[in-house]
Simulated scan of single mutants.
Amino acid sequence: MYPDWPRSEADLVPLPRCDGPKLEPFDFKGPQQIQFLEYLGEGTHSQVLKVKILGQIYALKLFRFCWDEDWLGRGPDNEEDDLEANTAFYNYLEPFSSECRAFGRLREAGHEELAVKCFGYVLLDEEHERAMLSQFSNLELNGSCPGFDDMRLRFLGRDGRPPPIRGIVKEFGPAMENMRNLEMRRILRDMVGLQQLGIVYIDIADRQIIGGKISDFSTALTVPHYLLTPELNPHLTPEWISAMEYEAFRFSLHDFIDFNEMARIWNEEHPEQKTKISFRALPRGYGCDGYKFRRTPSREAVYSLVDPRLYDWKDSTVGEKPRSIKGQVGTKQSGSGKHPQGIFRSRRRLQAKPPRWHYDCSQKTAAVLKSDSFSTSIQWVYKDGHIFPQKKTSYV
């Protein structure tokens, strides 16, 4: 399930191994060499270190081996030790895979400016793991929290060894110290761009803003995804496709509700700031502008700013084009240790104001959609080679 220890550079393939975007390995230009400088902090899914590689300073995010039942929406009816099922969910839901897919999308679409710069993933070799743990004895990477079961031992590699610690190398920058309406507008613009690229559930908060950019995608869902892309499972019923549309809308809308909540919390926690943040993603309320498909008292339409499902992921193709062609973005291809300079991808065009996604529903459903609380309404199960929706909370 987890990436195994590489025996050669050829084993360092883009990850994860499922349909859709992938992240390439960091190019050390030779043997792995990392200088660990400083412990920066931790989150639910990871711990972050300041490091130096090839003379440059980076932030290295190291991922915990989390319990799979904590993965968003994975239902309890899945067999606990079913390697095939766990691998299927791992590729789409596990925090390391989620970040690989989101940053991979930004690379392939030519829009890395929408987030902090990502330089690839790392599988720590044993020498660097020992050095890191010797220097930072407080690191806990075996589970979702200290004292958790040793999840790293659950799915061993081909040689019977625990899998390597996984990391992602990112741009090093300062945390958010001052937040103004101008910065909020820029962050919202980036969020709208991310959703247009099929990246949703960003978990936006001021702690995730580094150097003025969104930095964390450990919960993100990226098209194609079994929730956002019904065609991945040809056996879905119309009822389930409708339920999945509702769920996808909730994820999209709640990113912008979280944006508004980030502004509210910042104002509360920074009373000394003379100019309060007044800018909001949804200025008339939680996705309600009075627009109605059916002019009856029982119906109401809410909206999100983007429909992330519209991203054409099948058109994310690679072509050989000369560097001099205007509008093309170069993409290095890793895995074999070679980086052909003639392989490029076209930069996707984004709209400053994409069409809103209106959702026609009952007043009861609208009240649920516009609430601050958020939890998944669908649980998922793996069977017969596909991921199926299994249970849902009533929303009508």
Rank of each mutant, 00 (worst) to 15 (best):
G160Q: 02
G167M: 03
G147S: 06
D149P: 14
N142K: 13
G157F: 01
L156Y: 01
A131D: 06
G143K: 11
L133I: 06
L156I: 09
P146F: 00
R161Q: 10
G147F: 05
S137W: 01
R130G: 08
P162H: 04
G143N: 13
C145G: 07
S144V: 04
R152S: 12
S144A: 08
E129D: 12
E129Y: 05
S134E: 13
S144P: 14
S137I: 10
R154P: 09
N138A: 11
P163V: 00
R161P: 00
L141V: 02
L139K: 03
L156K: 15
I165C: 05
G167P: 08
D150K: 15
L133V: 07
C145M: 06
G143T: 08
N138I: 01
R158M: 04
R154W: 15
D159C: 03
R154F: 13
A131W: 06
L141F: 03
Q135D: 03
E129A: 03
E129P: 11
G157D: 11
D159T: 08
D159W: 01
P146D: 04
D150E: 13
P146R: 08
N138H: 08
R154G: 10
M151F: 15
R152W: 09
G167E: 00
L133D: 05
R161A: 06
G143P: 09
G157E: 01
S137C: 05
G157Q: 05
L141K: 11
D150C: 11
L141A: 03
L141N: 00
L153A: 13
N142D: 13
L156C: 04
G160V: 04
G147Q: 08
M132V: 04
F136Q: 07
L141T: 10
N142V: 11
L156V: 11
M151V: 12
N138K: 09
M132W: 11
C145P: 10
G160F: 02
M132H: 07
L133P: 02
P163K: 01
A131M: 03
Q135E: 02
P146A: 01
D159S: 15
C145N: 10
G143A: 06
D150S: 13
F155P: 05
L139S: 09
R154I: 12
L141W: 10
G143Y: 01
S144G: 14
E140T: 07
D150T: 15
N138M: 10
M151P: 07
Q135W: 06
G167L: 02
S134N: 15
F155S: 04
